[in-house]
Amino acid sequence: MRGEGALLIEYADLECPYCARANILLNDLPVRRIFRHFPVVSKHPRARLLAHAAEAAALQDRFWPMHDSLMDDQGRLEDPHLWERCRTLGLDLDRFEADRRTAAVAERVERDFRSGVRAGVMTTPTLFFDGRAHPGVPDAHLLARLAGLA
């Protein structure tokens, strides 16, 4: 969770270019963002692995920095790039490597994914705001509402 303001729950996939675009649009809005993983592996082969990496970073209080790092630079998602990101973000690399392979981290991601399925999420990103689902990259109307302007 980050930010202050109205609650926004986002289901996203860290290997999804539409999610990366949505992240840029949401970054400076006055909303309280809750991120939930919705990795679609048949579409994005590294999505689940990246979700695990972000949760491993979360265990060192670096979820959002890792999230932003992955979202802002989607061309480099292989393991050596992850290690480089860890160094940049000041993560303990050995701990990261161990944590991202644990059952607890996998279960956390799976729990998010299943909660998305139950909520009817079928595409990423899907934003939940004001009690309803908004599938896809937020449009100008939704962004204005999120900004408190409409």
């Binding site: 592996v41 048949s42 579409k43 994914f113 399925v117 595409t123």
Partner: peptide, 13 residues
């Protein structure tokens, strides 16, 4: 495009 999303998610479950 939409069919792709639909079947991908069904595959996951």
């Amino acid at each position: 495009p939409i069919c792709t999303d639909q079947l991908n998610v069904y595959q996951e479950v």
